[in-house]
Design a protein around this nucleic acid. Structure first.
Lengths: 128, 128
DNA sequence: ATGAAAATGATAACTATTACTATTTTAGTA
DNA sequence: TACTAAAATAGTAATAGTTATCATTTTCAT
């Protein structure tokens, strides 16, 4: 299935690359609608799914529910504030040694890992 | 709200402690019904939620969908096979230094982290 | 044994996501 | 530039997982 371009798809990517807030499908829908007013939510989901499968974007599985998306497909880490629920990028390099270590111990083929920190962010701490 | 015991709740815990398969709510429901035939699915969800919030069990957020539960509340790591979709426990100690490192870099309060490896498990590899 | 608080079963409701389908758009080719 | 098959879309229905509601039952301190 040779993929074809569409203004909808490109608007979604453009929006995702422009933010670092890790929006969910609804937030993406609301924002992309500003540029493409009659895009449908189904189109947003369809494209998010394809782009996730092709590795163009990342889907962040959340311990308590719906998916969030990240326009940066390079593996990196996240921090989830339990108060404001925001997800922040963590700026440390990907730790290859973890994969190597688990690969040796388990004899599984390790493709990668996801690492999510949890706690209270700087901003929320100062609001006490 | 002083919590009270119930046979349903105790059957759920007992089942969860007896397996290491990280079942989802439906699998828990099906199995607990063998001992408590007329338990309802809502009761299963209600108890899983409460126990997760109290820290008695763990909920494992899955990158592609529903929640799975782990009767072992001690933080530990997981491996998710992309072929058979099973979730295995990874037997390495929790890495406190990660939390300390991120704590220093971000000035957030770090409560902990979750680490999920992804790949093809030994069993599935041998089936090729 | 009593009664207030908590838990339950049954069902409805809700949220996130996917499937369906008729129509529109894309892009390769004449 | 017009033609056409494949791909993508909008709109809507359907599904899956989960939570809410509420009348009834169970728990447990007194």
């Amino acid at each position: 299935m040779r993929t074809k371009r569409s203004v909808q798809k490109e608007a979604i990517i453009e929006y995702l690359k422009s933010v670092d807030t890790h929006p969910n499908a609804d937030e993406i829908y609301d924002n992309v609608r500003k540029k493409v007013p009659d895009i449908s939510l189904g189109t947003v989901y369809r494209n998010l799914k394809k782009m996730t499968q092709s590795g163009e974007i990342l889907r962040i599985g959340f311990d308590d529910g719906g998916g969030r998306f990240d326009g940066n497909p390079k593996p990196h880490y996240h921090f989830n504030c339990v108060k404001c629920l925001r997800v922040y990028d963590i700026k440390i390099p990907y730790i290859d040694e973890l994969d190597e270590r688990i690969s040796k111990i388990t004899e599984n083929s390790i493709h990668g890992h996801t690492l999510m920190f949890r706690g209270v962010c700087k901003n929320c701490k100062s609001k006490d």
